[in-house]
Design a protein around this nucleic acid. Sequence first.
DNA 1: GTTATTTTTGCAACTCCGTTGCAATCATGC
DNA 2: GCATGATTGCAACGGAGTTGCAAAAATAAC
Lengths: 140, 140
Amino acid sequence: MSARAQELLKDYQLRLTDCRIDVLDFLLVNQRAVSQPELEQQLSDRFDRVTLYRTLNTFNEKGLIHEVTDTSGTMKFALCGEACHGSDHHHHEHVHFHCTQCNQTVCINEVDVPHLSLPTGFKPQKFSFIIEGICQSCQQ
Amino acid sequence: MSARAQELLKDYQLRLTDCRIDVLDFLLVNQRAVSQPELEQQLSDRFDRVTLYRTLNTFNEKGLIHEVTDTSGTMKFALCGEACHGSDHHHHEHVHFHCTQCNQTVCINEVDVPHLSLPTGFKPQKFSFIIEGICQSCQQ
DNA sequence: GTTATTTTTGCAACTCCGTTGCAATCATGC
DNA sequence: GCATGATTGCAACGGAGTTGCAAAAATAAC
Ligand SMILES: [Mn+2]
Ligand SMILES: [Mn+2]
Ligand SMILES: [Zn+2]
Ligand SMILES: [Zn+2]
């Protein structure tokens, strides 16, 4: 149980429970997006899948993590970083890379989401740029 | 049963069946991405959901339609257009707009997918740019 | 430290979507 | 029209998301 996880939970006014600490630790260590089913497995079935579902839900509502959509079919979540707490307000408009081999998805904070002008009539609110391919570790 | 649907099915060497014709007609008329569950409803339960699933699967494999990922959770498919049959080969790298109000998703062919340079080590293969917001019809 | 209050958890249960096997039905070529 | 293989509908299953509820745990008050 890292000190950082405890600190974060207190900052966000969340009770310190085993599940929350372990989930947060996992996200802090691994620095990538994770799904509820994968957490269940990675945390050795120590927690019920519903508990993990609700933990991720709570973290998401409080703004500790954000949703990451890729083509894997199941929703993933990544820890909010500096890139999220930008100049004016909280936003998650960064590029995500999804490796089709290991199925891992990471936030690419180094690259800015390019600006786009849409045809008239569309009111954009959120951008999601997903790149699929082979990640660094999977390169043969 | 439009002539265009029949023509397309023949072009792609697919047998003319009620389900395929109706699905293709729907895509030709509506010009937006559609999911299997929505098709089931839109086509008034005239076909089994498994049949619709397999129809979309077949169309996708043959290159008549392509997958569209948005945050709705269920996979959608859109008819391949001119933008798909680009200069060199078949590709689906166009921008998609997902309306969070009516849940409809459309291909934005007018806008090019911006080019991005990734940190070293990543081998990009496919790009997916989804914009969420309010569409033309849903504007109050 | 004990007790009271409030939150969190685990379980059961349900829905929706994706997927497969199989036998009946249909589309096509002869 | 008949033979052939392709397509369909049904049944069935697994995975993921979601909710209600009572037991258990975390904090607050004493
Ligand atoms: Mn964030
Ligand atoms: Mn296409
Ligand atoms: Zn990988
Ligand atoms: Zn709309």
